[in-house]
């Protein structure tokens, strides 16, 4: 394990809004190729955490280091340039472009061609865009208008876009929200296989415990802004505090079913 570099390190991350601690002293690390889930009930501070990692929100205190760089004062676009791909809870894509063009825009940016006013974008990195789409199983939809896609396909497109800058780290905010159960499993399997293949670290938040326990190598549990548990799925599953929170929340998961799936 010690040979694997640390992609993301978070130390003492804190953020409060008008006296209410949204995030309190959160620290954790993420290594290359590792899939880390950040879970917690609604209002636990997952999104605030995510937004701070992503540069959309500025922490009150604490330190975020991504690939060895302190991200303090960095805008989301600068963090992206460090090698971070990102997907959103509600998909953010370019609805007036084709599926391929959505990926091409990210490739244009990655290759520092944003102010190129002369080349033709439809021919720009066409093959690479196609490869990325193939990777997420969207190759057949490449020429479709993005505005016509079903939601699950949009999620896959977002993944392709997020992979365009050959990221070392993927930040995925509820990657499977709004998808049918079968699609969820598929998308996460896909993500996991890509991550393992390319040695990408993945941090994701998720409501669906099936998804979390099947795919996460490690799980962080956030409650009222603080980390209350951290560990392998088995460890977290056995954590009494976590159980209490989730039982209190009325969200129960079927442990036996999970075990079966692992076997």
């Amino acid at each position: 394990m010690s040979m694997v570099p640390t992609l993301l390190s978070v130390e003492g991350l804190t953020k409060s809004y008008g006296g209410v601690h949204a995030v309190r002293g959160v620290s954790f690390e993420l290594r290359a190729g590792e899939i880390l889930a950040l879970i917690g009930p609604n209002g636990a501070g997952k999104s605030t955490c995510f937004d701070m990692l992503n540069g959309q929100n500025i922490p009150d205190s604490g330190r975020i280091t991504i690939l060895g760089e302190d991200t303090a004062g960095k805008k989301p676009r600068a963090i992206w340039r460090l090698g971070v791909g990102r997907t959103f809870q509600i998909t953010a894509t370019f609805p007036t472009m084709t599926v391929r063009e959505n990926v091409q825009v990210a490739l244009v940016s990655h290759r520092h061609q944003l102010f190129n006013v002369w080349s033709s974008t439809p021919n720009f990195a066409r093959e690479e865009a196609g490869r990325l789409l193939d990777l997420v199983g969207m190759g057949a939809y490449a020429e479709r208008p993005c505005g016509e896609l079903a939601y699950g396909d949009l999620k896959r497109l977002e993944l392709a876009v997020a992979l365009a800058n050959q990221p070392k780290l993927l930040l995925m905010d509820e990657p499977t929200a709004g998808m049918a159960p079968r699609e969820r499993i598929e998308l996460m399997r896909l993500t996991a296989s890509i991550a393992r293949e390319q040695s990408i670290g993945v941090l994701f938040t998720e409501h669906d415990m099936d998804v979390v326990f099947e795919h996460a190598d490690r799980i962080l549990v956030l409650n009222r802004g603080s980390l209350i548990a951290e560990g392998s799925p088995e460890e977290v599953r056995g954590n009494a505090q976590v159980r209490a929170i989730y039982l209190g929340e009325g969200l129960v998961y079927d442990a036996r079913h999970r075990d079966g799936a692992h076997a």
Binding site: N54, K75, P76, R77, A78, W80, R81, R86, F88, A92, T93, F94, P95, T96, M97, V105, A106, S109, H110, L114, V161, A164, N165
Partner: peptide, 12 residues
């Protein structure tokens, strides 16, 4: 189209 997405792919 999407200020959020474009920022997230490194566009100023």
């Amino acid at each position: 189209d999407s200020p959020l997405r474009s920022e997230a792919v490194g566009i100023n």
